[in-house]
Design a binder for these strands. Sequence first.
DNA 1: CATTCATGATAGTATTACTTTTATTTTGTT
DNA 2: AACAAAATAAAAGTAATACTATCATGAATG
Lengths: 225, 225
Amino acid sequence: MEFLIKFRLNEQLCVKDPESTELGKSIVQGAIELMYASGFEQFTFRKLSIHIQTTEATIYRYFSSKHQLLLYLQNWYWSYLEFLSRLLITEEKTADEKMRMVLEIITHHHEKGPALMDYDLNQLHSIVIAEFSKSNLMRAMDTHHCDVVFNPLTGFCSYVSQIILELKPAYPYARSLASTLLQTAHDQQFYTHHVPLLTNHTSAIPNHQYVLNYLHSLVDAVLKH
Amino acid sequence: MEFLIKFRLNEQLCVKDPESTELGKSIVQGAIELMYASGFEQFTFRKLSIHIQTTEATIYRYFSSKHQLLLYLQNWYWSYLEFLSRLLITEEKTADEKMRMVLEIITHHHEKGPALMDYDLNQLHSIVIAEFSKSNLMRAMDTHHCDVVFNPLTGFCSYVSQIILELKPAYPYARSLASTLLQTAHDQQFYTHHVPLLTNHTSAIPNHQYVLNYLHSLVDAVLKH
DNA sequence: CATTCATGATAGTATTACTTTTATTTTGTT
DNA sequence: AACAAAATAAAAGTAATACTATCATGAATG
């Protein structure tokens, strides 16, 4: 069976919905490939236009800037996380099981759904990890835009914090813990690859397994003591 | 009494030591002011040269690029954190007290030493928080450079992880916890200001107090259960 | 058949990041 | 005080970037 995932992403994230045309999809697809290969700073619409055999001007008709395109990707990724959570985590599960699934999702242990979409999830994940510097982008936005654009992130965070409260109803830092887990999943994975001294990872286990174990130990300590 | 803090920063962080001349200091000082005011992306050597009444070419004799200058600032900040830790945390203190001081230092509760240096620490702190996107920079460096440049960060992290191990010798994630605390101190402070939905902060207490309380609760749970 | 609309092709602008060259000033040395 | 060496200023130049604008083309739509 063929799923077709289509989130309703905010219109501020693009000039024209890239999902609506083949060209639009190839812009997003190509952008992911190029950003993954050489990073956001090196990425230009010119390079992208050559990569996917179109012109700069055409790309600008979908995204008004490369920053908007990055926001689009991040937004898409967060939407995907929440989508996957709501798909996999059903209400009859215990809070413990739900939490375990959340951790697996944010550490990217879900290789089950690569066929669910057109884009390379692992590359996208790397980009979002690498370019999760919201600050740059936030400066360019007013507070209102900010809220709208980061809606999927806060939405996912709210979702996780509810599960946290199921486990420990009186816990006063549910949202902070949720955002910490999300961020730490990203950071620690990044560190294991690039600055291993900031972690206790050894080559005995895969990187993402280490991160998962660490997050589990954190959550256990915080919510079950 | 007048302290003079002077770290030995790696020579890869500048072309010519900015601490060695008044002009050099005003470059760093001015860079902090401009980056604080409008962010790293908006920051250019041209604007800086106008701001401090010199020329672009002169600035290039101290820093080969604005990226190098940012690295310099981050490095300086991390060095300062470790310096302050070793100054304030003496060996006769209990591990509990040491940990408390570390948390106060990384959440910036140490207003005691603003006269210690020429630069505005709060502005510098904001910059490091805001531009803590190591990924961009790291891509431009090979692994060796990376190690050297991030030495102060890993050094501080090692220092904190030793205190963690004093509190709980068998804890297997001391380094990861240290880097998580450091990062989380940054992130949560940022969130309370810009995306409060990612935290449980209320206006009842100051932002940095909230972050400190949260980190305390984390550390208590992880190391004392 | 006519029109619209997405795209292609091309050119242009302002800014940026950085280099180079040539003065001019400051500094240290004797 | 005189001189050499170094640091800085002034100015111009280059390649790339992030866009914007214009106009032609070709496919789809009505």
